[in-house]
């Protein structure tokens, strides 16, 4: 079973868009069975609306879209309330985007939301690598708040076209609950080093579509030098385990 750890659904305030039917068609095109789906940043800031839209899309996807709830920490207690509501409605995890919602990943305002996710028993996924908002060490700091809850970092926990973010991402991975996704990471040696150093259970295939192109993102995993057992974990086993995804014939 191939699980894409991140796709964005909806029309973003920031101009990109992907609807559920297009996402499913693209998934079919690249052989992806299931995707973790998160809402885009809504124009007007109504996160309940976009959470409901993604939950509804998931409910009509025959199990192929797994919804995560997106909240804005600047809403204070309202963000916690929204997370509880969305999880009750079917969301299977928390998604935070520090760059698009303009908060620092380890800001104290974030902590009650992350702690609420742990209390609810749902993993946390964070859009990672954005300078000032979601740097590797900031994310490692936030992951320490709930050490027993899975903390998933998109984009390998970093963005830098010289690989200068790798060092801090690897320090974040010293937290056993931190996992990193493959999206956008051009350094094959980093992806392979994560597996060699921290284990194949810590690396998760994700495309972050439509930010990145699905077929090309898949090739990052297909062309890297992993064993078949490692590749199966990266391409689906790890997401299945972390998010409790079960499918006939698949043991999470």
């Amino acid at each position: 079973m191939i699980v894409d750890g991140l796709v964005y659904l909806g029309t973003s305030h920031f101009g990109y868009e992907l609807d559920a039917s297009s996402a499913l068609a693209r998934m079919d095109g690249v052989g992806t069975d299931i995707s973790l789906a998160v809402p885009v940043h809504p124009s007007g800031g109504n996160f309940s609306s976009v959470n409901d839209a993604v939950i509804d899309a998931a409910q009509h996807s025959a199990g192929r879209l797994i919804p995560l709830a997106r909240v804005d920490p600047w809403n204070g207690e309202g963000a916690v309330v929204e997370l509880r509501r969305a999880v009750l409605a079917g969301a299977r995890g928390l998604f935070l985007h520090p760059s698009e919602e303009h908060f620092r990943a380890n800001d104290i305002r974030v902590r009650p939301i992350v702690e609420c996710a742990a209390e609810l028993g749902v993993p946390v996924t964070v859009a990672a690598g954005f300078h000032l908002f979601a740097e590797g060490l900031q994310l490692g700091y936030a992951a320490e708040w709930t050490p027993d809850n899975a903390f998933v970092l998109t984009n390998g926990g970093q963005f830098n076209i010289s690989g200068l973010g790798q060092f801090d991402a690897e320090l974040a991975l010293l937290n056993p609950n931190v996992h990193v996704q493959t999206s956008g990471i051009y350094r094959e040696d980093f992806l392979e080093r994560v597996v060699a150093t921290f284990g194949p259970e810590r690396l998760i295939f994700a495309t972050a579509a439509p930010m990145f192109e699905m077929s090309y993102e898949r090739k990052r995993v297909d062309l890297a030098h992993f064993s078949e057992a490692e590749r199966q974990l990266i391409l689906g086993g790890n997401s299945a385990r972390i998010f409790g995804i079960e499918k006939e014939g698949w043991q999470s």
Partner: peptide
């Protein structure tokens, strides 16, 4: 490609796509 630490095989696929 910025290889060899990034993959010329992967980078080539980008142009193919």
């Amino acid at each position: 490609s910025d290889g060899p630490v990034s993959s010329p095989s992967l980078e080539r696929q980008k142009v193919v796509i």
